[in-house]
Design a protein around this nucleic acid. Sequence first.
RNA 1: CGAGUAGCACAGAUGAUCGCGCCGCAAGGUGAGGAAAGUCCGGGCUAUACAGGGCAGGGUGCCGGAUAACGUCCGGCGGGGGUGACCCCAGGGAAAGUGCAACAGAAAAGAAACCGCCGCGUAAGCGGUAAGGGUGGAAUGGCAGUGUAAGAGACUACCGCAUCGCCGGUAACGGAGAUGGCUGUGUAAACCCCACUCAUAGCAAGACCGGAUAGGGAGCAAUACGGCGGCCCGUCGUGCUUCCGGGUUGGUUGCGUUUUCGAUGUGAAAGCAUCGAAAGGAGCUGCCUGGUAACAGGUAGUCAAGAAAGAUGAUCAUCAGAUACAGAACCCGGCUUAUAGUGUUACUCAUAAA
Length: 132
Amino acid sequence: MTEELRGLHPQPSIKKAAEFRTVYSKGTSAANHLFVMYKHENGLDYNRIGISVSKKVGNSVVRHRIKRLVRECLRLNGTMFNTGLDIIVIARGAAKDKGQEDVSKAVMHLAKKMSLLVSVENAPQNGHLDEA
RNA sequence: CGAGUAGCACAGAUGAUCGCGCCGCAAGGUGAGGAAAGUCCGGGCUAUACAGGGCAGGGUGCCGGAUAACGUCCGGCGGGGGUGACCCCAGGGAAAGUGCAACAGAAAAGAAACCGCCGCGUAAGCGGUAAGGGUGGAAUGGCAGUGUAAGAGACUACCGCAUCGCCGGUAACGGAGAUGGCUGUGUAAACCCCACUCAUAGCAAGACCGGAUAGGGAGCAAUACGGCGGCCCGUCGUGCUUCCGGGUUGGUUGCGUUUUCGAUGUGAAAGCAUCGAAAGGAGCUGCCUGGUAACAGGUAGUCAAGAAAGAUGAUCAUCAGAUACAGAACCCGGCUUAUAGUGUUACUCAUAAA
């Protein structure tokens, strides 16, 4: 598998436990009431995403749902992010009952806070892209 | 119509836009559950070299049947509960032995007199007595009568119990009878006994490919060390154990109806896709036959989730409204537990009517 092929993958993810540890120890972080976000430069020309939801948050269905909502948000807004970053999003207990809109707001809030976005003015208020 | 009992089915749908896994060059196809859960049983599959014998250990426990198998299912029997439909039961053995039975109670298993009752005695007390009271989960058959100083299976009828044969039933068991006399409480989800039964580990099993690599010291060695399910016998094999240091932990497969054959398409080929046929299957659905049933046989149709930081989602609209419990991880058969709401079948009770 070449670098180029990996780059074509829609949403490259952080896979190894060692890579997670690197981001936790060497990266910077920010938090709000729903999520904690870590970032660390990976030296690549694309971003990699990791989503972590602990068992404290809920059962398998709840955890899986939160992962999907976060991934959906990052997919729709992916073009607005700077490249070359490893980003980890950790869900907190309060994220359990939230819908797509709340999740998107919270994630983009953190992204803005950590200045991950290309241009702050272009950041949308809600999560999904309209026919713009 | 009301209250209830037992069972079955469904588990939002449709459309639009964006997006993900797998198969495919592409077009396109396909993509979570009734419990996917708990991991409590059973089986397949894989590895351990399935030689053998003994011991230890686990599981099951009324009877008959079903099944690949089960602790599951079906049908009976016995006991208990409910007016009833129906529900519940770890339901073998307590006369093989051992243990335990707290507190209360006089006494808890070869015995016992606390109150009471009766007799004797002036009285203290002595003797008789298990009918009554009280304690307890449980007190040495129940109840009525005879009897007696008062009492007692001491005696009698009925019930219960034990033994014997008879009748019905494959059997558990049921029925009627005779005899015995009232003799030995409970607990085996205590040890135990009896009968039947069980090898262990699990897909991170296992198989293949590739990469990396570095050894050194000490000890014991056929009376040794290791394998053969926990131990012993026995048997098989030949170096083994320990300390210090170093390195690796990637991919493919297992994996989803399987195998074979033929045709067509594509391709250099391997292959892949589509269609058809045959065989195999402990998958699913319908029908037929047998069976009370579980189920069996036959027949037709159908059988496309296979991820690996781990795919099924998001938004909007419509339907009168609402969405519970919850996410495949090798695969099947069960059990148990969680569960909003809807539909449906059969039956019971009560009321009314006839």
